[in-house]
Design a protein around this nucleic acid. Structure first.
Length: 340
RNA sequence: GAUAUUAAGCCUCUA
């Protein structure tokens, strides 16, 4: 059992979901009775909409067994249902749990915020405390990022302040969420206060926080602050460079978008899939059809990135605007199955 | 040996 569980969770951690599921099947047929660790590992690989059926199969395996009462298995089941968008099923598992820890609660809170139900998430957050479970950073971050994603700056900041008052130290998850919440002109001054908190807390040179700040100032209309954040630290990566491309695309300054794309490559950073969305979009706005086609083909050939729906959208849009109907058909025919 | 929270991104229309 130990060996099977170990090899299954190794595959799960590398994202080899299909292989992990196959191994789980072999384990059952061996026959070896899976333990709680094996169930947790395999449920993790079923936590996405495409693998929902697998998740259901595993749940049927668990039903009626001793593992049904296990807290870790229960939490993994809740997570599986939440990530598959089956909130009702997550609720059923949650309600049946004999014991609920902070993980059970925060998984459910995430489930509600992902369905754009922040009000219900907040109710759960309060109920958790009434049941004597103290929120940890993950629980605070879950509710804050929920409000941030729904654009509710006021509530996000309210929970951020409550978190501080409760004596918890915000981490980089917290800061990125609060920065997201402050990413529009109306609340950019609040964003500046968060920026000060970040500096004081010693997170000012974290590349991910800096890219969130670049994004915030761009959306808040302050290009000066965008540049200050970018140049304020010498350490960059593909994400900060791409954030600069996106920031200038927001101002419709596509020449600058290209400038940062070149800078990124000169500094030896490989563009990622988001970089290519910015780049193709900029080519579209500048009418650079040939360049766009070249960049598009370099994605897979040079960088090994499979184009996604967004990349095809950009490319087809710019080809359409330029009247390249022959190329549109060619690209359209070459699109992989499953894209809409 | 374990399960939960965060990053930057397209087009169209509403304008």
């Amino acid at each position: 059992v130990f060996a099977w569980s170990e090899i299954i969770s190794a595959h799960a951690n590398y994202g080899l979901n299909c292989l992990a599921f196959g191994l789980f099947g072999q384990m059952v047929q061996a026959p070896v009775q899976p333990d709680t660790h094996a169930y947790v590992a395999i449920l993790k690989t079923c936590a996405s909409a495409e693998t929902f059926v697998n998740g259901l199969i595993i749940h049927f395996h668990i039903m009626g067994s001793v593992h049904e009462a296990d807290l870790f298995v229960g939490n993994a089941l809740i997570n599986m249902y939440v990530k598959c968008g089956a909130l009702k099923d997550a609720c059923i598992v949650f309600d049946k749990l004999a014991r609920r820890d902070v993980v059970s609660w925060s998984t459910m809170i995430t489930g509600y915020t992902q369905q754009m139900c922040c009000q219900e998430a907040m109710v759960l957050f309060e109920a958790m405390q009434r049941e004597g479970v103290e929120p940890n950073n993950v629980a605070w971050n879950a509710i804050i990022s929920g409000y941030a994603q729904s654009g509710d700056c006021e509530e996000a900041l309210c929970f951020y302040n409550r978190m501080l008052l409760s004596g918890r130290e915000p981490d980089n998850f917290t800061f990125v969420s609060v920065l997201n919440a402050c990413s529009n002109v109306a609340v950019i001054d609040q964003g500046r206060l968060i920026h000060a908190d970040i500096t004081e807390a010693g997170y000012g040179s974290d590349v991910y926080i800096r890219s969130a700040m670049i994004d915030m100032y761009a959306k808040g209309g302050s290009l000066e602050d965008v540049h200050n954040v970018f140049t304020g630290d010498k350490i960059q990566n593909a994400v900060t460079w791409t954030a600069m491309m996106a920031a200038h695309a927001l101002q419709s300054d596509y020449t600058k978008v290209m400038h940062y794309f070149k800078g990124m490559q000169q500094e030896g950073w490989s563009p990622n899939n988001v970089t290519f969305v910015c780049l193709l979009s900029a080519c579209g706005h500048m009418g650079l059809v040939e360049d766009a086609l070249e960049h598009f083909s370099s994605m897979r050939k040079v960088y090994g990135i499979d184009p996604t729906q967004e990349h095809y959208n950009c490319l087809l849009d710019l080809l359409g605007r330029a009247g390249f109907f022959h190329e549109i058909n060619e690209i359209f025919e070459s699109m992989p199955e499953g894209l809409n």
